[in-house]
Design a protein around this nucleic acid. Structure first.
Lengths: 119, 119
DNA sequence: TCATCATATGTTCATTTCTTCATATATTCA
DNA sequence: TGAATATATGAAGAAATGAACATATGATGA
């Protein structure tokens, strides 16, 4: 879209004041991008299930796979995504790796979503 | 995965009690699916931008397209997705259609996400 | 060190998603 | 009614995504 300049001048700015205000209050693109990336992580039912399970208790990979009836590989892949998004942390105990929610934001975000879904 | 029964009997249930508790507290698959679908809607930067803009003020389609530098078609498509998810509502005023956030959950969800992103 | 168990990672394929372009619908006004 | 404007929708192609499979890594104990 190179013709933005043109468009702007053509356009009558129906609601000039408001548009300016909105532009002012809009955060940087980069932040909004990160925000979308964060929600994208929540936007998959396998990951939501994992997060929900972890909201009850720390769990190891095998237990997650078993209780959610998923393959080990799938769980591991998804845990990596959750880890990259800093939604979960882990600790190793011998051969076993335990995952847990990284902070309470996760719980809050999920329960806000729940409120919307359940109404 | 039909071999679940087998797997279960093989598996030693390393953390039996906890696993049971987690299974107990896990909501129905359907609800978790809906929850993921909801977050999926937030998981796109175009839609996040639109939602953010609407969190400041009700806006018509043309203004959204202009201020976010997006095509009219793209905005309209995304607004449909937001409408289907009940995140926005609209009212018609002549040729112009105004969109607004449908409820305050949207604001809350976004600001919870922001807190996580900004730390 | 080797076998075994738990987890992680790389790759491929099918599916989904987003954008764009073209076109349709709806409303206003002459 | 017909032109102009605002918005909506359908279709197609490119890119992103998730699941499955094979294999690699890391840790334990014989």
């Amino acid at each position: 879209m190179d013709a933005v300049g043109d468009k702007t001048s053509e356009y009558l700015m129906a609601h000039d004041e408001i548009v300016k205000k909105v532009i002012d209050e809009q955060p940087d693109d980069e932040i909004l991008y990160d925000l979308a990336e964060l929600f994208k992580v929540f936007g998959d039912s396998t990951r939501i299930k994992i997060l929900y399970a972890l909201s009850v208790s720390e769990l190891c990979v095998g237990d997650i796979a078993q209780l959610l009836n998923l393959s080990q590989s799938s769980v591991s892949h998804q845990l990596r995504i959750l880890k990259d998004a800093k939604l979960v942390r882990f600790r190793r105990e011998g051969k076993v790796v335990f995952y847990a929610l990284d902070d309470d934001h996760v719980r809050t975000i999920i329960s806000m979503g729940m409120e919307h879904v359940e109404e």
